[in-house]
């Protein structure tokens, strides 16, 4: 069946709600309305308001109550409508969601999946398109996942819903309806903590995740036409990150370009390049590069196209890296 990413996530939630009675979806407008991105469309009608719950408008309490539910053995799936509103709940994630297992030496664990549509590119208002992943990756105890395709989204979310750890599931808004791809109807899982080689190559490693992945794949295809054969690494899980796959790829190619839309300073590329330097420095034939959002406030919708990395910047970075001898 060909599905968009929004439909693939919906299909996954549907299957998981049917599979595990402990799963509860909650958030603003997730019920009757099916969510502002329609990701939970139809689930309220099918599973009822006990399992798909519209909550009052308060992000901190949506996450905070989910923490209490999860500690008691339920598996809540809170949704925050937009990344820019996740900050009202950030203290709950930082102070409690990330720490309950450690604080209680495993007595209480929080098997919950916090779904947050992330990233820009949909021409929405301020606070509706933020590259927030570093804020979550920076918290030990949280699994951070960013799917890159409809197929990936369904399999990764199914795994997240079986995880013993709290998961922040960052759904790239830009890809919700960008395209359809073949997604199996039956349940399948994609393991957390394992990156994938989205395209094999030998000349340079293009490392990315989430929203930028399809664009990077296109850039890689075009570069191939021009005689450069890049490998594309899709990280899938940002924390705990699969550093072995990153290292192996860079050791093979000797070159690396990292792409994400979050700001450059302390964006995830900083960590990725630091790890490459630690583990693959002597295999490098050129200085690693990063293509990221600028270190600015993300412009409002009229100017946002000037902010996000695009094919022209990515291809230029690859060519510059390849030109180093």
């Amino acid at each position: 069946m060909k599905l968009t990413m929004a439909q693939a996530i919906n299909a996954c939630l549907d299957q998981e709600l049917a599979r595990d009675r402990k799963i509860i979806l909650l958030g603003e407008d997730v019920g009757v309305d099916g969510g502002v991105f329609r990701v939970t469309e139809g689930l309220y009608a099918k599973y009822g308001k006990e399992r798909v719950m519209d909550t009052p408008l308060a992000e901190s309490a949506i996450v905070g109550t989910s923490i209490g539910m999860a500690a008691m053995g339920l598996r809540p799936v809170p949704e925050i409508q937009f990344d820019g509103f996740s900050f009202m709940a950030y203290h709950q994630v930082l102070c409690h969601m990330a720490r309950m297992r450690n604080r209680t030496r495993g007595r209480f664990t929080l098997p919950l999946v916090l779904r947050i549509p992330y990233g820009g590119g949909i021409k929405a208002l301020e606070h509706h398109g933020e590259g927030i992943e570093s804020l979550y990756i920076h918290l030990p105890g949280i699994v951070v996942v960013a799917p890159s395709t409809p197929y990936e989204a369904k399999g990764l979310l199914a795994s997240a819903l079986e995880s013993k750890d709290p998961v922040v599931f960052l759904e790239p808004k830009k890809l919700y309806r960008a395209y359809k791809e073949e997604v199996p109807e039956e349940r399948y899982t994609i393991p957390l903590g394992k990156a994938r080689i989205a395209k094999e190559g030998k000349d340079i490693s293009m490392i990315t995740y989430g929203a930028q992945t399809p664009m990077v794949m296109e850039a890689a295809a075009e570069l191939e036409q021009e005689g450069i054969n890049p490998e594309v690494v899709d990280l899938r899980t940002l924390n705990p990150c699969d550093w072995d796959t990153v290292t192996e790829s860079v050791r093979k190619t000797g070159r690396a370009v990292v792409v994400h839309e979050a700001v450059k300073t302390l964006g995830f590329a900083s960590e990725i390049i630091a790890r490459i330097n630690e583990k693959a420095f002597y295999h490098l034939q050129a200085a690693p590069k990063r293509v990221t959002g600028w270190d600015t406030i993300i412009p409002l919708l009229a100017g946002e196209d000037y902010f996000f990395p695009d094919k022209s910047r990515v291809k230029a970075a690859v060519k510059e890296t390849m030109a180093e001898k």
Binding site: S60, A61, V63, G64, T65, S66, I67, G68, M69, A70, A71, M72, G73, L74, P76, H91, Q92, C95, H96, M100, R103, T104, F108
Partner: peptide
């Protein structure tokens, strides 16, 4: 018994969630 929270008041939504589960 559920562990207390040091940041003031931040445990209250947990209590609501626990009560919900009960």
């Amino acid at each position: 018994s559920f562990p207390f929270a040091i940041p003031i008041g931040t445990h209250l939504p947990h209590a609501v969630g626990i009560a919900f589960a009960l």
